[in-house]
Design a protein around this nucleic acid. Structure first.
Length: 483
RNA sequence: UCCUCCUUAGCUCAGUCGGUUAGAGCAUUUGACUGUUAAUCAAAGGGUCCUUGGUUCGAGCCCAAGAGGAGGAGCCA
């Protein structure tokens, strides 16, 4: 007989049939009731053992955390907390768990802090919260692939090891096989990278975008979905040294097509999770609601997690230009009462507090800000045709989410070779490093656009978790690469 | 990297003005009970009060330095 997953049993219970389940004991109450979870769902199956029919030594081993196989008859439950239960006739102890040891872990049946759970990343999968988070992380991932596949996008794998530092997106991790204590040196004392594995210095990628553009300018529409690495000493609840990013790129799209695509994608993800992982979502929504009760009124969220997802899918994102954003901020009472710590001036980047004001106070919904000043945006973003003199802007777009900040950053790309070369010079990027990128603008260049979605930030929004370390199985942050 | 806060039992936390033997709930163990739902009842075990140094007759509590963690900022996704 094959084991049946608990998710199947609970979805379509075949009452009166002999069934085998295997999983981990969450609780064993009254020497009679086993609460069994096998990871297929957040819900547990109640298994009832008649303790008079089993050996004491077997019952002793049914402890929290232990792995067991149970065979028995599926029947309607006499108790009120569940509809079906398993009347156990055979117990197999598959893996024991010593209660004294379990007591020191996150598996003991009680509430734990997220910090404590983080210290046991290898065991936190066993908890309701992280089981739900990682099932939903899968759902978000799968929804993204499904979304793009349905629209005829091709999934492209861009390199993880890269020789170009062109995007300047941040500090990079060096990849080398040289002996750090005794590297080969040039005559002038510098490290001789010709002797390194690739014959030149290489790093872990900070973005697959430039490579993605090459594919898009042949295959039409592509997306990447891979790990990304930033060696920045960022110690916040929104940053990781290793994270995952989705970067679609579409030939012939302009900035408006780009916004439509991003908005559709974000809505699709929310719908998918609501439709397919409702149990996990409800658990997380209730969990957040309980947590909110211990917070002061002004720090509570107005909508529940589920309501926030519904809100996103059923309302258009607010679209404004950077210049309009500056006007709104400067005309706000918040500004007039001097409640912003940072000055609001055309030409400087928006600070976190400004973005939060726009998203959380002014519009109360996701906001897309476009047409930023060229001075603080990347070299590859397309220069707008009708910029005021001295106020040159680029066709950039950032999508800001409540509680998260920047969820998506993208732009229409500079397709004009002469302008792009000008920008390279202005940003001190040597053209010879990017010859392969510039080539795309020589052989049938076309307008195109794309964006990057921070995968973990999306999972944060969908699960309601407030620390990015709690939505990735094994977080890598400064001074922390355990497991 | 900067600012603020935190570190007491396995976990979550209390610990008064610096004063005798540092407490509670949960968890664990033992026993009782047995249709429970974070089961209940009784008892027991469990402490480098983060580390080092200082002040003091006396420090969990005051001071200094360090370590670890959290929140916020910057950078960004």
């Amino acid at each position: 007989m094959k084991r049946v997953k608990i998710s199947e049993i609970l979805r379509e219970p075949k009452l009166g049939t002999e069934t085998i389940v295997k999983g981990w004991v969450r609780a064993f109450r009254s020497n009679r009731f086993i609460q069994l979870n096998d990871g297929s769902t957040i819900n547990t199956l109640q298994a009832v053992v008649d303790f008079e029919q089993f050996d004491e030594s077997v019952l002793k081993k049914i402890t929290t955390g232990a792995a067991v196989g149970l065979k028995g008859l599926l029947v309607e439950s006499q108790g009120s907390g569940q509809s079906v239960e398993l009347q156990v006739s055979e117990v197999e102890i598959i893996g024991e768990a010593n209660p004294d040891d379990v007591q020191k872990t996150v598996m003991q049946p009680k509430k734990h802090s997220l910090e404590f759970l983080r210290e046991q990343a290898h065991l936190r999968f066993r908890t309701n919260t992280f089981g739900a988070v990682f099932r939903i992380r899968h759902a978000v991932s799968f929804a993204i692939h499904e979304f793009f596949n349905q629209r005829g996008f091709y999934y492209i794998h861009t390199p993880i090891i890269t020789g170009s530092d062109a995007e300047g997106a941040g500090e990079m991790f060096r990849v080398t096989t040289l002996d750090p204590t005794n590297p080969p040196l040039n005559e002038d004392g510098s490290v001789n990278y010709k002797e390194d594995f690739f014959g030149k210095p290489v790093n872990l990628t900070v973005s697959g975008q430039l490579e993605g553009e090459l594919a898009a300018l042949a295959l039409g529409q592509i997306y990447t979905f891979g790990p990304t690495f930033r060696a920045e000493n960022s110690n916040t609840s929104r940053h990781l040294a290793e994270f995952w990013m989705i970067e679609p790129e579409v030939a012939f799209n302009d900035i408006h097509d780009n916004m439509d695509l991003a908005e559709d994608m974000l809505k699709y993800i929310c719908s998918y999770v609501m439709n397919h992982f409702a149990d996990d979502l409800k658990f997380l929504s209730d969990r957040e609601a309980t947590e909110q009760q211990s917070k002061p009124q002004n720090e509570r969220t107005e909508l529940s997690l589920i309501e926030r997802l519904q809100f996103v899918t059923s309302n258009d994102f607010k679209r404004i230009t950077y210049t309009e954003a500056i006007d709104i901020l400067r005309n706000s009472n918040h500004y007039k009462k001097k409640k912003f710590q940072y000055e609001v001036d055309w030409g400087t980047d928006l600070q976190s507090e400004h973005e939060r004001y726009l998203v959380e106070k002014e519009f109360k919904r996701p906001v897309i800000i476009t047409d930023y000043p060229a001075s603080f945006k990347a070299f590859y973003m397309r220069r707008n045709d009708h910029s005021e003199p001295g106020r040159e802007t680029v066709a950039a777009m950032d999508i800001l989410f409540p509680g998260i900040g920047e969820m998506v950053g993208g732009s229409q790309r500079e397709e004009r070779l002469d302008v792009l070369k000008e920008k390279c010079a202005a940003f001190h990027i040597p053209e010879e490093d990017l010859w392969w990128y510039l080539d795309t603008r020589r052989f049938g260049s076309v307008p195109h656009a794309g964006f990057g979605l921070g995968f973990e930030r999306m999972v944060m929004f969908v699960t309601g978790m407030s620390n990015i370390r709690d939505v990735i199985p094994f977080p890598r942050t400064p001074q922390n690469a355990e497991f």
